[in-house]
């Protein structure tokens, strides 16, 4: 993953004691996800997904922790440019696919339907749609003002398109179309998504139809935005 301040490689988060997170305690893991602090209390860069995890319930984080413990340890050291803690897209996706999803501490927004709030929880705290689809600021943090307006770095050197309801985004997709895409990967035209998005669909296909619909309801409610970075080239695969 490339940001304006360098390239990060997916760290080793298998239970290997030396190179992975085998020597971490569950409490350290919770703290990393909640507060963005590494094993020894050092701050982690916002380019990693921890801001998105703070909305997860304790139970979900414990489930993710339990899951990572079952992954075979890998003795491969994390690459040198790595940040201390965990997250790049793939392990995240691996992790959440198997989670039991609970209603989270992400405070429900009053005046919005239960379905919308469920969709927001799934999209923001569990599936991390914005981690790929929202543009980033110079520090690698998410540019909230242009949420979901597309990002040149959607993981693996791929562009993540605008998925706000702008005509250049997914303005033409209905909620049902989007729910279908999250189930099979098919767009209304019969095209199929690839790259990181295909992995996302592997996960969302396992959700209930009601949960996919909830995500669609929430995403379709996001204000239409034109991409701020349509001309910026995708980073080289690193």
């Amino acid at each position: 993953m490339t940001t304006d301040f360098g390239t990060f490689y997916p760290p080793n988060i298998t239970p290997d004691k030396v190179h992975g997170i085998g020597s971490w305690t569950e409490a350290q893991f919770h703290r990393a996800l909640r507060d963005g602090k590494g094993k020894d209390g050092e701050y982690l860069y916002p380019a990693f997904s921890y801001p998105a995890f703070t909305g997860m319930t304790d139970q979900d984080i414990s489930d993710l922790w339990a899951y990572l413990k079952t992954v075979p340890p890998s003795a491969q050291p994390s690459k040198p440019h790595d940040l201390k803690f965990p997250f790049s897209f793939r392990p995240v996706l691996l992790g959440w696919q198997i989670l039991f999803l609970h209603k989270g501490p992400l405070e429900p927004v009053a005046g919005k339907s239960a379905e919308w709030n469920r969709g927001r929880y799934l999209a923001e705290a569990v599936a991390h749609c914005g981690e790929c689809h929202s543009p980033r600021n110079a520090l690698g943090g998410i540019d909230d003002k242009h949420a979901y307006a597309g990002n040149p770095d959607g993981g693996d050197g791929q562009r993540a398109p605008n998925i706000s309801s702008h005509p250049k985004g997914i303005g033409k997709m209905s909620e049902a179309d989007l729910a279908e895409l999250l189930n099979t990967g098919a767009t209304p035209e019969g095209d199929y998504v690839g790259g990181g998005m295909a992995l996302v669909v592997d996960g969302t296909a396992k959700l209930s139809a009601a949960d996919r619909k909830a995500i669609a309801v929430y995403i379709k409610s996001v204000p239409a935005q034109e991409s701020t970075q349509a001309k910026k080239p995708a980073p080289k695969k690193g």
């Binding site: 791929q158 398109p161 095209d191 690839g194 790259g195 991409s227």
Partner: peptide
Amino acid sequence: GACHGPYREKLPG
């Protein structure tokens, strides 16, 4: 999808 991922540009806008 397997071909579009690595071989097709998708503009974010």
